[in-house]
Amino acid sequence: MEWILAPLKKYATFSGRARRKEFWPYMGVFYVIFLALFIPVQTDPGSPMVFALGLFSLALLVPTIAAFVRRLHDVDKSGWWYLINFVPFVGGIILLIICIPEGTQGANQYGPDPKAPPVG
């Protein structure tokens, strides 16, 4: 469970880096729950699931954006790249593709390599 809780523990931490091991499981669980709430809303827009979907989305908005920003930092991109998500049709796909590669080895301008063993 640590892999899903790690981004939530860093709720609004936009600095630093996030490994793929931290980012992808969190995003997978996020999207599965989002779709489980979204599909009933599509079939019955008047259902109480609308409230649950809104509450879920609002509660996880900040940690999800923070996880994306830290992941972008790991691949040596500015967090401002997150805004590409707002390009219609392709922005979200481009953002996810940017997040696929392994992070920069060693320290980069956003912090030390999260894969490196702790010093000391």
Rank of each mutant, 00 (worst) to 15 (best):
F56H: 05
P40V: 02
I94K: 04
F51L: 15
A36S: 14
S15H: 06
F38I: 00
V29I: 15
W3P: 00
S47Y: 15
V75D: 09
P114I: 01
T64I: 02
A12M: 07
F23R: 00
A59I: 15
V87R: 11
M49W: 10
V62W: 09
F38C: 02
G103A: 04
E22N: 07
A116K: 14
S57Q: 14
P48M: 14
W81F: 13
Y26E: 01
A67K: 04
P40E: 07
F38P: 01
A116D: 08
Y11R: 08
T64A: 15
A6H: 03
P7T: 01
E102Y: 01
N85M: 08
Q105W: 02
V62F: 10
N85F: 09
F86A: 12
F14S: 10
V62P: 03
Y82L: 10
I33T: 13
F68V: 13
A36C: 12
P112D: 14
F38T: 06
I33L: 15
F23N: 00
K115H: 05
N108E: 05
A52W: 13
V41Q: 13
G16P: 02
I84C: 10
A6K: 14
G54V: 01
I98M: 15
V29F: 13
F34A: 07
L35M: 14
L53C: 05
K21M: 01
L96N: 01
N85W: 13
T104W: 02
V69N: 07
W80E: 09
V62S: 07
P88R: 12
P112Q: 12
M27E: 06
A18Y: 03
F34K: 03
